[in-house]
Design a protein around this nucleic acid. Structure first.
Length: 492
RNA sequence: CGGGAUGUAGCGCAGCCCGGUAGCGCGCUUCGUUCGGGACGAAGAGGCCGCUGGUUCGAGUCCAGUCAUCCCGACCA
């Protein structure tokens, strides 16, 4: 009725906006470029956060929290990093407001309260963190230092999109210090694996692991690794990054340690992050024209039970059975919700929970009770079936695993079908328009060619896949010799 | 920051061209009947018509400015 979504085939962007807004994940706010994450969306993010947090702890990391503000002079210390982020930084220059003498009831920044040093609102925290690490690290015994923080950051984007690119977003940023290059490189790849595992096992989202070209590298990094996912419209989305920072920040912030051999050396660094953008990835990878489809392992509610009443007398009886069923499922660790709100009718609830992406919906009325069954609908395939009430908790537990698995399989199939190879420019550009997706093609390895391709085809090199096989070929644009294929796509 | 569009009830919109009592659908409240795919009836509540200024006897409507949001580009996770 009032919540019908735009069809994906009509306007994919509009479908995405409709889905996010109408499913209750997020809302626009009074602040330009900033969104409100609503309870359903936040619950999803909390589940992601909890899983990732456990994975970080399991790999030896601890959480800490650093300030939102970075003094400008600190921010400037690592030049490339500072330059890279400069044009999207919010800056605090005053510490007080006062009544506007020329405009009653209005406030202006008090010209007498200008900060001695401007504060940058963190677009990322390397500067403040490395300035702190200098005091924490003296000896090789202090290493490795493995810290993560859950925080908000601000990047003043020109154009924003719900979850995918907002001026403020939530994320985690890991910042580690190591005694050797090898240790830091290993950490970079280890965390990339953590992200890939999370994406595939929890989000049911297949990802390509790779390394960015110098053009696409994080400002201040020696190497940027990423996981790239393919959305349903054939555009790629960077879902996570892990950076090998070399000694750049150690040198900028004078972070040295004394080796076993009593020598002063700069430490080696990494940083890695994923953000609320993952929520957007989840939406765009799996959902359909009826709304969200959430993978069971992350869904805030995995099973919703809808009692179907028939006359006022049936309520206690049906409610009791639903409670019993829910209790049995909870003993299996299943997240269940019973919706016995009498103000909405079953049909309305069906549509609503489909919109919200609940993996399994169970409806039960007198007819089912008499037959000892329930009507079970799975969100991913929309199949409905009658399932025996007896031991329903075991059936549901198994089905949740199955749905999770099938969602991944389906997404993987989609990605494989939409990953193609192109050998000529003609082929390449035709593919981009006709069958968007990943395109594996030869590139001569120069930043100029990469730039030119981006300009002409609006496609970028998403990454060079890890363990990429070497293969002699010719660059699709210049025809110059190339040693390997790289992965192109139009991207978010 | 350039191009396009839009701001009227919680949401979606009409009204503006041609100035004269602010409307429709959904939602909301109350009561009743209902309940197996977005129920029905009856009665209600709800508005600085984005903001500021101008023209006018009179502005949602005309003019100027301004702010905000969305879409498309350049920049980015």
């Amino acid at each position: 009725m009032s919540k019908i979504l735009t069809k994906r085939s009509e306007d994919y962007s509009q479908w995405y906006n409709d889905t996010v807004l109408k499913s209750g994940l997020a809302d626009y706010s009074a602040v330009r470029g900033c969104m409100v994450i609503k309870p359903h969306g936040y619950a999803l993010w909390e589940n992601m956060r909890d899983v990732l947090d456990a994975m970080f702890k399991a790999t030896g990391h601890s959480n800490a929290y650093f300030p939102l503000f970075v003094p400008k002079s600190l921010f400037e210390a690592e030049e490339k990093n500072a330059e890279g982020f400069a044009k999207e930084c919010a800056v605090v220059t005053h510490y007080r407001l006062k009544a506007d003498p020329n405009n009653k009831g209005k406030l202006i920044p008090d010209p007498e309260a200008v900060l001695e040093e401007a504060l940058v609102v963190r677009p990322t925290s390397e500067a403040i963190i490395w300035n702190t690490y200098r005091n924490w690290i003296q000896s090789y015994r202090d290493l490795p230092l493995l810290i993560n923080q859950w925080a908000n950051v601000v990047r003043w984007e020109m154009r924003t999109r719900l979850f995918l690119r907002t001026a403020e977003f939530l994320w985690q940023e890991g910042h580690t210090a190591h005694a050797t290059r090898e240790d830091a490189e290993a950490e970079t790849l280890r965390m990339l694996d953590v992200y890939a595992t999370f994406a595939e096992e929890y989000m049911a989202l297949p990802v390509v692991k790779g390394v960015k070209t110098p053009n696409e590298r994080f400002a201040g990094a020696e190497d940027t690794y990423c996981i790239e996912a393919l959305m349903q419209d054939g555009k790629a989305l960077q879902a996570g990054t892990s950076h090998f920072l070399g000694q750049n920040f150690a040198k900028a912030f004078e972070v040295k340690f004394l080796t076993k051999e009593n020598r002063q050396e700069y430490v080696w660094a990494t940083s890695w992050g994923v953000s609320t953008r993952l929520v957007g990835a989840l939406v765009m990878a799996h959902s359909d024209d009826d709304g969200l489809i959430l993978p069971p392992r992350l869904a805030p509610v995995q099973v919703v039970i809808i009692p179907v009443y028939k006359g006022p007398d049936s309520k206690p009886e049906i409610d009791a059975k639903c409670d019993e069923m829910a209790a049995a499922m909870r003993t299996k660790g299943i997240r269940v919700k019973i919706d016995n709100d009498e103000n909405t009718r079953p049909g309305w609830k069906y549509a609503e929970y489909e919109l919200k992406g609940m993996p399994i919906r169970i409806a039960m009325g007198l007819r089912d009770m008499a037959n000892g069954v329930v009507e079970l609908a799975r969100r991913d395939t929309k199949e409905k079936s009658l399932v025996p009430l007896e031991n329903i908790e075991n059936y549901v537990a198994g089905l949740l695993v199955d749905i999770q698995h099938q969602m991944y399989t389906r997404a993987l199939k989609f990605r494989n079908e939409n990953t193609r190879t192109a050998d000529t420019w003609e082929e390449f550009t035709t593919m981009l328009d006709a069958t968007p997706g990943f395109i594996s093609a030869h590139w001569d390895g120069t930043p100029e060619t990469e730039e030119k391709i981006k300009e002409l085809a609006k496609a970028t090199i998403r990454c060079i896949q890890l363990n990429n096989p070497l293969e002699d070929g010719k660059c699709i644009l210049t025809g110059n010799p190339s040693k390997q294929r790289v992965l192109f796509a139009r991207a978010y």
